[in-house]
Write a protein that binds this DNA or RNA. Structure first.
Lengths: 341, 341
DNA sequence: GTCATAATTCGAAACGCTTTGGCTTGGTGG
DNA sequence: CCACCAAGCCAAAGCGTTTCGAATTATGAC
């Protein structure tokens, strides 16, 4: 069932039917009611492709996911972000299209997305310092919103980010307040912007309290269980092990916990651990009481908001660059305690 | 730059240009070379929407993700599956469109996907026993492939699945061989088809060796860390705790590990644990030696193959229903050992 | 040289919708 | 009674492709 057929059954012109359905004012209320009713009865849905061709908008948003040897973006955080963004898209009648491509093809993929008219805008994931995609997308002319920030980017751009620096600063201060002086940082890969900021927050807090950051107590790795384990283990095996750890993700935190337990250390008593908790749906930080003390910020909510920002940008392309900085909560759980003498 | 413009600069008709680019034989080799060259120089890409309108195919595949109170499908397994499928799509020039919708809207979403012509086919995730989507999609007439199976479905359908029954049977046998008799099962939600099959494999193996399955040693929950913890803890707190556990996922396995460690039990010595390992990219089962003994099967590979099957189905709609049953490997890790007397 | 045949190329319709501009109709004010 | 206006509707021109059928030109056989 298409427009023309529907119009014929109603004995109206396609123009009028289109307008009636589209909510345009110049159609008689009674006529509109007839049309709407018939459309429902015949289960009519306008063909998306045709609309897109006629209007020039694609009513779709793109997410390109580079697959790389180095840093795997298809991670749990990504999944929850997508779920959040997807909710917003569905409600707004937008499609979400995902391109999984080798990272060497990333630029080409964005160009194609534009030149083929596949999407009206894109979300940029996992920005690095001085991320080249910002210049690229600006150049191509696709509306985009960045999830995170890219230190050193010269051009203005829209972003939504957690205040990573502040979060890790507070976490560090919290540990310092508990008497900890040797604190390890198990960070994500530090070419990622968020990891840089976290590290800054960490060292800033230490320095502010007169503790000299010890480079050997800072690890920077992919945030997997095993790398968290490895990093924690390496630190704990030293002659002067840290008494506390700050870990950049729940998953590496679980690895760190395993390392501690391997050494017979009990979390919260023998060693303190703070993680960053993205509130992933299947990795809750405990049911009632949080198992880890954590800096908490829902990545799913970030996804929702990022999508809103993008849709808004698409609707009003000339709006001034919008930024949103989400503050992480500090949640006190069972994994921290005063320094063990 | 569009077809018409390109044709004009070449002093050819759009027809010929289209054919030259489309690889049709009836165009002079020399002309084709000119066209191809010009297309590259002008950075021409045919507009996807227009192609779709003209051909009737959308060159896109849909994944609909219901968000439900009960069972969250946006889970880590899903992310890796998507990544695998996405690779295949990109290579084949297909787009992947994802719809995140409230589960109450699922049927409507599929109908729209069809009537709006958004996709050429869909992948069905997380089938339950007697999954209603199979009848629905057959009725709607969208080509689809199911990741998993739906026991009790009356209609024929394409699927790719891990041999869950066999995998859990082998895991159980392995534990029995190690002398374990009281074995707990921490399964996923048992309205999910895969969970039913796993349970069957488990009980079949027990019965075959003359061990009567104990219903109180079987838990069925969402596969999160905390539910794994809770289930394991409940079993271990009994007066007659199991000496071994089989756990349906890495994540709940980690929860189970935590429960064991809380009780001072060391994995592989005091208690044996086997998990199912989907080979998630950020949750590797150890770096070199597997930490958990596991039944292993890459969900990413399943995604790749599912996508291939679907594209094949789209290309040749009348091909006979294809099924693929992937066998899981049994990987011996450090979490199992002979029964502790 | 002629004519059938093959090799190329082209014109135009079609895909399903939106949108511009125009046409009727009936009502209003002078 | 007429000019004018608003409301309501429609015809047709796109949007950027593909593709059918026809037209043109080149090729070869006779």
């Amino acid at each position: 069932m298409n427009l023309k057929e529907l119009a014929r059954t109603l004995d109206l012109s396609p123009t009028t039917v289109s307008r009636a359905l589209g909510g345009y004012p110049e159609v008689n209320a009674e006529t509109r009611a007839r049309v709407v009713d018939a459309a429902r009865r015949h289960n009519y849905r306008p063909n998306t492709r045709a609309i897109q061709l006629a209007t020039g908008r694609s009513m779709a948003v793109g997410h390109v996911i580079p697959i790389a040897a180095r840093h795997e973006i298809v991670n749990p955080i990504f999944a929850d972000f997508i779920a959040g963004a997807g909710e917003t898209y569905s409600r707004a009648g937008y499609d979400m299209v995902m391109s999984v491509v080798p990272d060497t093809d990333e630029a080409r993929t964005y160009r194609e997305l534009k030149s083929r008219g596949t999407v009206d805008g894109v979300i940029v994931h996992g920005p690095t310092a001085k991320d080249p995609r910002i210049a690229l997308l600006t150049d191509i002319g696709i509306p985009f919103v960045v999830h995170g920030r890219a230190t050193g980017a010269e051009l203005p751009y829209r972003w939504i980010d957690v205040n990573n620096r502040r979060a890790f600063q507070r976490a560090t201060e919290f540990l310092l307040d508990l008497g900890h002086r040797r604190i390890g940082l198990i960070n994500g890969l530090e070419f990622m912007d968020f990891a840089i900021r976290r590290r800054t927050g960490f060292t800033d807090a230490l320095i502010a309290r007169g503790v000299t950051p010890d480079p050997t107590l800072m690890a920077s790795e992919e945030m997997t269980e095993s790398s968290g384990y490895r990093a924690a283990r390496a630190m704990l095996d030293r002659p002067d092990p840290p008494t506390a750890l700050i870990v950049s993700s729940m998953i590496s935190g679980i690895g760190a916990r395993r390392a501690a337990q391997d050494r017979g250390l009990m979390l919260g008593r023998d060693i303190s651990v703070i993680i960053h908790d993205d509130e992933l749906s299947y990795l809750k930080n405990g049911d009632t009481v949080p198992m880890f003390t954590a800096t908490r910020s829902s990545v799913r909510e970030a996804g929702r908001q990022a999508a809103e920002m993008l849709l808004h940008l698409i609707a009003t392309p000339d709006s001034p660059p919008e930024h949103r900085l989400l503050e992480a909560e500090l949640i006190i759980g069972q994994s921290t305690g005063p320094r063990h003498p």
